[in-house]
């Protein structure tokens, strides 16, 4: 890595769900449209990250009365009348822009048999379209469900953190387009410091739900190059609670495969030894 490692800090506490990141990403990277159907999942018609979706804004509507100070809007009986006709208590609307995590230990990169996926000088993980041969191994390897093969093409695509823009000294398109600085781009060390301060600030303000996700270099993927400030458990946003890079266990797997192969060899040898030579 010849340059400083850079990344994203996505502070979902200030995301307004405008989806400018999704559009900027598609415009800059010339990604095809991938579906024109209404999902009825709040305002999320994108559904998930994928071959043609490198930023995805999740919308979560939660009934969540506790922990919030409500000022009565009017005196008298109006509050007493708040007997719901249906389940209509207080609710909160969580929005969060998801992206490739650019893991420190990236399973997609590890398992790629062609060398198409590589670690750039910025510490990011990028697929080289001309080398990818469409084997699809990276897809189930990713613990976050980020990378995907494009239908009718077969090759895998995902966020490049705008590798071309980084090379020209520019920030990625999504961060540039974000109007609230929910998506922050910069040197990873700086972002981690900033994120820790932000969590403290939110805790002091009474937002006890605030937590960081993917910031810890000691987690199962060695820390994410794109990490998040969330207001609920990761799984609520469709993120795995405790992802582990699958290749962490690869030495053990090879060992067991070797032992199993030897067992096969030994077992069959034993059969021949037991049954002897010739016609039996």
């Amino acid at each position: 890595m010849s340059e400083e490692r850079v990344g994203f800090f996505t502070d979902t506490s200030v995301c307004i769900g405008c989806k400018a990141c999704e559009v900027a990403c598609k415009e800059w990277n010339a990604i095809p449209e991938d579906g024109l159907s209404l999902t009825a999942m709040s305002y999320d018609n994108t559904q998930a990250l994928g071959a043609s979706t490198w930023r995805h804004v999740a919308f979560i509507e939660q009934p969540r009365p506790e922990g919030r100070t409500e000022l009565p809007l009017a005196q008298g009986e109006s509050t007493a009348q708040e007997t719901p006709v249906g389940g209509d208590g207080e609710l909160r609307w969580l929005m969060s822009s998801d992206v490739c995590k650019h893991c420190t230990h990236a399973a997609c990169l590890d398992v790629c048999p062609t060398g198409s996926l590589f670690r750039t000088e910025f510490g990011t993980v990028v697929v080289q379209e001309d080398i990818c041969n469409g084997c699809g191994y990276c897809v189930p390897a990713c613990p976050y469900g980020v990378i995907e093969q494009r239908p009718h093409d077969g090759r895998a695509f995902k966020c490049t953190m705008c590798y071309d823009r980084l090379g020209a000294g520019r920030e990625p398109a999504c961060a540039k387009a974000c109007p609230t600085e929910s998506i922050q781009f910069g040197p990873l060390d700086e972002l981690r410091e900033r994120a820790a301060l932000r969590v403290d600030q939110l805790h002091e303000a009474g937002v006890t739900d605030a937590r960081l996700y993917g910031h810890d270099p000691d987690d199962g993927v060695g820390g994410d190059g794109a990490f998040f400030l969330l207001l609920d458990r990761p799984e609520v946003y469709g993120l795995p609670p405790d992802p582990v890079v699958t290749t962490r266990d690869l030495p053990a797997m090879w060992q067991h495969a070797g032992t199993a192969a030897l067992s096969l060899l030994g077992g069959l040898a034993a059969c021949f030894a037991l049954t002897g030579r010739g016609r039996r």
């Binding site: 989806k19 999704e22 559009v23 598609k26 415009e27 449209e33 991938d34 579906g35 024109l36 159907s37 209404l38 009825a40 305002y43 018609n45 994108t46 719901p84 006709v85 249906g86 389940g87 209509d88």
Partner: peptide, 18 residues
């Protein structure tokens, strides 16, 4: 296309009670 896929269809918003 990029905007249309984000809100592809006309919809009505109603409460669970309705």
């Amino acid at each position: 296309e990029y905007l249309s896929e984000l809100q592809p269809e006309f919809f009505c918003e109603v409460s669970p009670a309705l």
